[in-house]
Every structure is written in structure tokens, then in C-alpha cells.
Design a protein around this nucleic acid. Structure first.
Lengths: 345, 345
DNA sequence: TGCTTATGGTTAATCGTTTAACCAATAAAG
DNA sequence: CTTTATTGGTTAAACGATTAACCATAAGCA
């Protein structure tokens, strides 16, 4: 490893001078600047980041805490974060909270659950990251993070509490877009298959659904509300109930693609033609949406952008700058495929 | 931030003593040990990792270079790596080569492509990681990594060249398991839908296919060979050709789940009943396999284990130990679902 | 001529650890 | 009663950078 010392000797100057020309923090004579640069070029020297960080108190590294890297939106977000970091010469330390779900489901282990999260945070702090991004879907985890931690912290995807920094997406508008799209295609009897009743996205998307119906002066029908648990089988099963309805809807807004996949497969198994007999719109634009027997029209969440923007916000904060908004809500957009038919006469 | 110095003052000893009791590198009297430990407990002191790393020349951090974190097998592998690292108190710096595909497809940019990869490697080296794991599917990328780099390097998933360290999975046996499973269920006319003809997995899985047929004394029929490009549409299209065959096979071994999904949807669209009219077996066990109209029987690649074992191997190497095998090939296993029917009379 | 001010560079302290080398005091050995 | 080990601790030199403080020398100015 070549160090400042080596360069200094080679160029016949002090290490301070070398440091100064590298960082451009002081005017040196053209002559010596040149000699030093030549020496650097000769040895393909690169400053020792640890030493630099130790001295400067900044690591140019941020910590990324993810609930489970294997989930699609998470990986997309991380990808977006990466892109921004790379542009700014930062690096990321990734920490996966893969034990989280397991611990959460063991009721006697709430304490372990809390300490698990905080150990991960502490571990990041020990690495002297300049900031942390928490990437997660489950708002319930967030309360368990002990704040403040002394360095900038931003939530990506999940909303933080009121005073936190976060960047997320617009669930309400997204749902409205979906429902408006159905309405635009002539549907007036629209059912909804919601996610888990307790979850935050369920509430928001529900709000969008109702708002859209109201705007269009469409009635809110109790018998058109169905609930699942975000998973495929619940979509598959609930579809049977929907089909058993005396007044079958012409379209259904399903709150995520996994359940929508269940719906489509279930409906086809019952001999229904999608979208002729029933239109379906999903949410999330997961990979699976393109690969269903009938490609799913759905709402795309801007995952990469969420990652990108959260990193941007975090870096602003680490540089000590204030940030214009401490919450950014990005818009979704609708991906038109083949699962919605027009029933305008 | 509390430092050794603070602890030392608090306990009335030198910083050396504090360091010694923390690391247990020297016997100190019970008395002072106790005083020091108390001081540490009081201040919840934790040693400054940068300073430690600088002094010791070890960062307890490894670099993970991924082709694209958004791909499923990659994320699974990273998850496995994480698990092992966590057990050993290591951390990972993640670097995503998300520009790789784009650069690869621009023929005039081969040079950029090469430097892109090596810049990423150099960037890791600048962070003084103790080792690097390359997680990738595409063997073609690997040649572009300039080796040796002076620190341990292991490939996960993709095979390296003959002398490299890598951990991968057994394509040949996996394919044989798939085909043997079909044979066991009475199939004698088995077609194959292969991946991209140039790719390494295609060759290996093909070898498994042929070996299995030979073992069972089944003929190798030229008209039963089909090629796709690993993507869904190629499965969808090729299925039409398969169905147009004068002597339609009773089963088909599809080299990945994405193409298999295309096959299933295509077949159903043509009015075929899967698996009654045609059995299909896939490879990869991607998420989609469970969510198809007919759940796909397929071969599971042990992705998390690949990650786990590659990390294990790398850590061995970074500790300066020799490693028993410098290549580990893990077995796949078959996931039985509903896309293969028995046609034993 | 003297006084101030640039200009171009060096010295040395510092960031927070680890650890070889040293030292004093006590115990063991001859 | 020396000599030699052992025990328990300290001092100070690294690791490789940054940067405030300093110091010549030359230039500018009255």
C-alpha cells in the first residue's frame, strides 16, 4: 500500500503538501504541484479511507436497514438508493432484519424483537455511518426503533411518525387512479378486495376507493367489501365469495397483485373470462403481473424513486443542510395491461 | 463519544490497560479489571471501529458485488450471506452493478463495461474490505474482473474459472432430478425447452436431460428440442410450436420457471389441460411458481445456502485459513406441486 | 531602510485504537 | 544475599490521513 509518506518521499516534499494538493485546500507552486501529481500517477496511490474517516469524522457511508431484502419492493428501493449513493461517492452498509417476522410472530418474544431491531441500529452506529435509511413495509416495526440516534435517519416506503423524515408514495391517489380508471371504462358496480384490515395501506387505499366512488356519485355498497391478508390464497378464496354474490360486480379493485393473481386464477377456474365477464385491477405492479394468464392492469409504486429520493434526502441531512420538505410523497402510476375491459355501450 | 481515554481516566488507569481488558490480551489484577469493567458499563462505551480497523488492518467488513439486487436469486443469496456474516460479527458493503446489462448491450462500449466492473472492485478495495463476494448469474461478466486483487474473492452462484473459489449449485443433477421425476411418472416422450443456447446453465441442464434419457434407455429425439431466451414470452411462443408437433410429447422439461409460466398460460389458452394433457416441470422455484393457474412442480436452487456457504468460505480465507474445497457445488431439490401428472396405466 | 504582507512550504498535533518494549515490585531460586 | 522470573502495570510508537500553527523568503510600500 502506498501512503502519503511514500508520495512525499518520491516528490521530495512533506506529507502535508501532498495532502494539500490532493484535496486542493491550499495553493502550492505550479512546480511542486506537478511533481506531486506525477508521483501520485506513478504509484496509483489512493488515500486510505479509514484514516481519512477517522480524522474527518465522516465515513461517506450510510447504513441501509431492510426488513427483508428478498421482497420485491425492498430490493427495488435499495437499487434506487444505490444509484443515488453512487452518484455522490457514498457507500452503503446493508443490514437485513431477516429475523424480524419470526420474532414478531412469537408473542412471548416482544422484548427480543425490540432489542433485535436496536442491536442492528447500534451495529450501524458502531460503523460510524453518516446516516441511516430504514426500508420497510410494515409500519408496526417502526415504533420499535429507539430514536433519536444522533445521526440523520430517514424512512423509505413506510411512513414514519409525524415528525420523522420519510419518503413514501401516494396510496390514496394511487387507489383513486385505479378506481377512476375502472369508472372511466364504464364500470359502476365495483367491488373491493382489501388487504389486512389493520394495515395502514389498507386504510389509505380504502380511502381512495371511497373518495373515487363519491366523486362519481356511485353508491357505497356494503356487500361489495371483501378483506384478505395480502397473500395469494386469500385472493383465490375471496373470489369465490365475490362470484357467489347475487348482484355480481362488473369490476373489482384488488389492493395488491398477489391477491389479484389469486382472483384471476380463481375466476378462470370457475369458467369466467377475464376481463370480459369481470374486470380486475391490482396494485403494486409486481413481476407476477406480467406473467398471469391475463396480464394485470395495476398501479405501479415508484419504488426506485423512493429509494433514490430517500438517499438524496439523507445525504442532504448528513451534509448538515436543512431539507425543504421532511416528507416526500411520490405519485404512483397506472400500468395498462389487459385485465380491465371497457363496458361502455 | 466515549473513548478509551475516558474510560482510563474514570478507572484511574492507562488506556493500554483498558484495551487489554477489553480484548483479554493480558492478565490484569482482578481488582483493576473490575474497576475498568465498571467504568465501561457506566458509559456504555464501545470501541471506535475505524480506529481499530486502521490499527489492525482488518475491517471485519466484506464487499458484496451483485449484478442486480432486484433479481430474485440474487436477493436470496445476499440474504444467505447476511446470515453468515451476522453470526461472525462481519458487515457487508453492498455494491450493485445495475449498469452492467445496459453497458453490455451497447457493443461500442465494451471498454466502459470493463472499467465499470473494475471501478466497482476498486471502490471496494478502497474501503478496505477483508474480502469480496461476487454474486452473479451471468458467467460472461466474470472474465472482465481483473484478478488477482490481493484479497480473497469468491463467486457465488456463477462458476468462476477453474482456479477460482466459488460456490454454486448442481445444474446437472438438478436437471436429472427433474427429468427422472417425469420418467418416474410414466413419461417417455419428453420434450425440452432450453434457455439461451450460449449460456452455461443451458449446457449443464441439457447434459442432465440427456443423461437421464440415456439412463432410462429413452430415445433422444431431435424434434423435441426447443430453445428460448429464459424470458416469459419465449415460453409462451415456443409452446405453440410444441403443440403443433405431429407427435406431441406427454411432458416437457422447461429450463426455468419464467418460460414454464409462459408455457402453462399458452397451453391453457389453447384449451389444453395441464397437467392432464401435458405435464410441465420447471427450474428455479421462483415466486411465480406458486401463483400460476396450475402450481408448478420445479427444481429449487439452494440460493440462501449458496450465499451462506460462500460467506463461510470467504471468511475462512480472510482469516488466513486454507479451505478444504475451493469449489462447493450444492444440490438442488425438487418441489412437488401440481403440474406433473402420472400417466402410468 | 524598516515594516507589513503574500507566497510556499514544513512541523507537529490529532482522530482512537493496539501492542511491543519497558519498568517496578514482589516472589522464587540458587 | 544476589540473581532470575513473574506479575501488573505504564509509555510511547504505530496505523494514515488532515490541518492549524508556524516559519522562511520575497515582494510591496512608505
Amino acid at each position: 500500500m502506498t501512503t502519503l509518506k511514500d508520495i512525499a518521499k518520491l516528490a521530495g516534499v512533506s506529507i502535508a503538501s501532498v495532502s494539500y494538493v490532493i484535496n486542493g485546500n491550499k495553493q502550492l507552486s505550479e512546480e511542486t504541484t506537478k511533481r506531486i501529481n506525477e508521483a501520485i500517477a506513478q504509484t496509483n496511490f489512493t488515500p486510505h479511507s479509514l484514516a481519512k474517516s477517522l480524522r474527518m469524522g465522516k465515513t461517506l457511508t450510510i447504513g441501509v436497514l431492510v426488513e427483508d431484502i428478498r421482497g420485491m419492493p425492498i430490493a427495488d428501493i435499495v437499487n434506487g438508493i444505490e444509484e443515488n449513493l453512487e452518484e455522490h461517492g457514498y457507500q452503503m452498509i446493508l443490514s437485513d432484519l431477516h429475523m424480524l417476522e419470526k420474532l414478531y410472530n412469537q408473542y412471548d418474544q416482544i422484548a427480543d424483537y425490540k432489542t433485535y431491531i436496536n442491536n442492528s441500529v447500534q451495529q450501524m452506529l458502531r460503523s460510524h455511518v453518516d446516516g441511516i435509511i430504514y426500508v420497510g413495509l410494515h409500519d408496526r416495526h417502526i415504533d420499535n426503533i429507539i430514536n433519536p440516534i444522533g445521526i440523520p435517519f430517514v424512512y423509505a416506503y413506510s411512513h414514519g411518525s409525524k415528525h420523522d423524515h420519510y419518503v413514501s408514495y401516494n396510496n390514496i391517489d394511487g387507489a383513486m387512479d385505479a378506481v377512476n380508471y375502472l369508472i372511466k371504462h364504464g364500470h359502476r358496480e365495483i367491488a373491493i378486495l382489501a388487504g389486512h384490515p389493520d394495515s395502514f395501506p389498507t386504510h389509505q387505499r380504502m380511502e381512495g376507493f371511497i373518495t373515487s366512488l363519491n366523486h362519481a356519485d356511485l353508491p357505497i355498497r356494503d356487500d361489495y367489501f371483501f378483506y384478505g391478508d395480502w397473500e395469494y390464497p386469500s385472493g383465490f378464496e375471496q373470489m369465490k365469495n365475490i362470484l357467489a354474490l347475487p348482484n355480481r360486480p362488473t369490476a373489482i379493485f384488488v389492493m395488491n397483485d398477489l391477491m389479484a393473481a389469486g382472483c384471476i386464477n380463481s375466476a378462470q377456474e370457475s369458467g369466467l373470462k377475464i376481463p370480459l365477464d369481470l374486470s380486475i385491477i391490482g396494485f403494486d405492479n409486481r413481476e407476477i403481473a406480467s406473467y398471469l394468464p391475463v396480464p394485470l392492469t395495476t398501479i405501479q409504486v415508484p419504488n426506485r424513486e423512493i429509494g433514490y429520493e430517500s438517499a438524496k434526502m439523507l445525504l442532504e441531512l448528513t451534509e448538515g443542510n436543512t431539507v425543504e420538505y421532511n416528507a416526500i410523497i411520490l405519485p404512483c402510476n397506472l400500468i395498462e395491461r389487459a385485465s380491465v375491459a371497457s363496458i361502455l355501450s
